[in-house]
Amino acid sequence: MEDYAAKMLLKTDAALREYVTGHAQYREAAVLAALDELRRRGQPAPEEATLRPGLEVAATTQRQVEEAAEAEQQQAALAADPEAAAAAGPALYSPAAIVLFSMFSVVIGGVLMSLNLYRVGRKQAIWGLIIFSVAYAYLGSLAVAWATTIGLSPIWGVLIFNLSAALAYVLWFWPRYLGTTAFRSRSVLIPVLICMAVLWGVQKLTPYLMDNKAVREQMKDIMPKQ
Rank of each mutant, 00 (worst) to 15 (best):
V111W: 03
I190N: 03
D211H: 05
A85P: 08
S133L: 00
L178S: 07
A137P: 03
N162F: 02
T61D: 13
A24N: 00
L112M: 04
M103H: 13
W172E: 15
A197T: 12
W200M: 13
R39K: 13
P90L: 06
A88E: 09
Y26S: 01
K204V: 08
M113W: 00
Q203P: 00
F183R: 01
A97N: 11
E37V: 05
A5Y: 12
I150R: 14
A125T: 11
M223R: 15
T61K: 14
P191G: 08
V57P: 01
A30K: 04
A182H: 14
V99N: 08
Y208C: 00
A88P: 08
V106I: 08
G42E: 09
A15P: 00
V65T: 11
Q25D: 11
R17Q: 04
A197Q: 08
P154R: 04
P82K: 08
A80G: 15
L10H: 11
M210D: 10
F183N: 01
E72N: 10
M210V: 13
A49D: 06
V215R: 12
E217M: 06
M223G: 04
A97C: 10
L16A: 00
M223I: 15
R27A: 13
Y138H: 06
E28D: 10
Q64N: 09
N116Y: 00
E56M: 11
A96T: 11
A135T: 10
W200I: 11
P154W: 03
A137K: 02
A143H: 02
S141V: 00
M210A: 12
M196E: 12
A77H: 04
W156V: 06
E37P: 06
A5M: 12
T180F: 08
G201E: 05
C195E: 11
Q226N: 10
G54Q: 00
A166V: 06
I155G: 07
L38D: 04
I190R: 08
E47I: 05
I160C: 10
A91H: 01
D221F: 08
A88V: 02
P175H: 13
E72V: 03
L117K: 05
A33V: 06
Y136A: 09
A6L: 14
L112D: 00
M196I: 14
M210K: 09
R119V: 04
I126L: 04
V158K: 09
V31N: 06
V215G: 01
Y177S: 13
